[in-house]
């Protein structure tokens, strides 16, 4: 899906836990999430911690959208 969206010229960032899969499929901008069943907020942690993780990683995704890249890039979190 990410490829078809990017093919139209829309800038897209994929947030995923399985980064190697995202890379193989062909995503160009990637931001890691913390797990598969809860990508952006571990229920075992406090509400505040979950919010911080989510706010932080979505912020990295926004940074990624603003960054020119030459090749497939995983943005550090």
């Amino acid at each position: 899906m990410v490829k078809e969206i990017e093919r139209t010229g829309i800038t897209v960032v994929q947030m995923a836990n399985l980064i190697p899969v995202a890379k193989t499929v062909g995503a160009n901008r990637m931001v890691p999430t913390i797990s598969i069943p809860y990508p952006l907020g571990d229920p075992k942690t406090s509400e505040e911690e979950q919010w911080e993780v989510r706010y932080h990683r979505v912020g990295i995704a926004l940074d990624a959208l603003e960054t020119e890249i030459e090749e497939q890039t995983v943005f550090a979190v």
């Binding site: 899906m1 969206i5 139209t8 960032v13 598969i36």
Partner: peptide, 21 residues
């Protein structure tokens, strides 16, 4: 993906955050 992209273009969306599990 192509169908969704078509809608996004029509709605003048310039950027996408796609989350996967």
């Amino acid at each position: 993906g192509a169908e969704i992209a078509g809608e996004l273009l029509e709605a003048n969306v310039q950027a996408v955050i796609l989350t996967s599990t």
